[in-house]
Design a protein around this nucleic acid. Sequence first.
DNA 1: ACCTGAACACCGTTCAAGT
DNA 2: ACCTGAACACCGTTCAAGT
Lengths: 238, 238
Amino acid sequence: MARPRTPLLSRERIVAAALQLIDAEGLDALSTRRLATELSVSGPSLYNHFATKDELLDAVVDSVIGEVDLSMFGAASRPVPGSLPAPMSGSTSDGNGERRATPWPDALRDWARSYRAALAAHPNIVPVLAQGPRRRPNALRLADAVFGHLVDAGWPRGQATRIGALMRYFVTGSALASFAAGFPADAEVYDAADYPHLGEAHRLAGHRGTIDEGAFETGLEALLDGLVLRYERLAERS
Amino acid sequence: MARPRTPLLSRERIVAAALQLIDAEGLDALSTRRLATELSVSGPSLYNHFATKDELLDAVVDSVIGEVDLSMFGAASRPVPGSLPAPMSGSTSDGNGERRATPWPDALRDWARSYRAALAAHPNIVPVLAQGPRRRPNALRLADAVFGHLVDAGWPRGQATRIGALMRYFVTGSALASFAAGFPADAEVYDAADYPHLGEAHRLAGHRGTIDEGAFETGLEALLDGLVLRYERLAERS
DNA sequence: ACCTGAACACCGTTCAAGT
DNA sequence: ACCTGAACACCGTTCAAGT
């Protein structure tokens, strides 16, 4: 066949197929040869669009991060060329055309939920994603939006950095793997002599959705309460 | 050579070499053939000691979790056969020989720090470890100790489960990857037009130790403050 | 019981060749 | 520019053979 008149592949098509494969069968199932087969081309064809498998993975990760809503920070959530700019819902206009920024705890809460939802939809790729923004544009935009909003809200830059970090810790940790599903459903595992308090642990996996979401929400609200406390102490000193 | 009089390998030696390889060169560098070479044996030899590579990885993960201090919960931290039982430092004896359990926020704080330290020493294996306890004895002991302590402290079982989960989210998230090191040290990356607030981000990687630890400590204390608030509300209602 | 080499079905990546 | 098949140096795992 050699070169067709209209290209068989595109970066977008490759990224979408890769994500689908990772979601369905895990990170280990993504091989360049398998992916190529899925796309009905030969293995080496992919190298016309990505220099290495790592570069492809970077693109997959950034496409997932692109799904995170950043509008509460007054930023467009997606830098995809040609896409419409998002409305500035991070600031609400009052009757006089003035803008009020979303209070930072509310912005952080909404963002964290959207962040978790985007990642939890693709848990198998979270280990790659957690490596940080690196040179991935959507990940850098996310970091920029969070940091900028916190600084604008009055947090010192050093504190704002730490808050961005600890929020990422919590969200990526919660999306990396289900807590409840980590406990085998087989009651035989939990020998009372070895694990006296895990007698009911075999029931956890059956409720994984509610347990994981409950833990995330409890942790998120506790974290925000603790940060509000620190913010108030900050104000007292000035 | 065939079978030697004294075995060349043991599970312990294999696990130690595997962890060393993962720490030094990453999870991808661990191949059964490479590991065998490191141990001066041929590839298939490992299959006399572990049924699969996954089983070997499970053993590596559990050896890391075995390093986590659980003594603040009044539990031995390591179930290794033949090891001495840890002192019951989770309860402190007073002058009358009575035992007082460590207050749960203090126990949780000490445990979280030890947990993070153990994982942060081996970040490359955290994605595997975050899959949950499964059938790994040290991981099950850890879950048992945390849950038991919280329930004994008066937390309802459902809440205790969620707290165990959200603590794991935060600790694994913080150990999975450095926040600071995720930002390239190259100032060229942070185009002011695209990322208006990241003008100093290229300096982050240089301070990775202090930034990551500061974020962890801030998040941990905020989380504990938020949980104490909830614990007080719990007491009010009864 | 515990090691070996040979073998099988895979990998990521390079490269010359085709249009 | 974009695809192909052949090739290279790797994988995890099985298995018959050796002591």
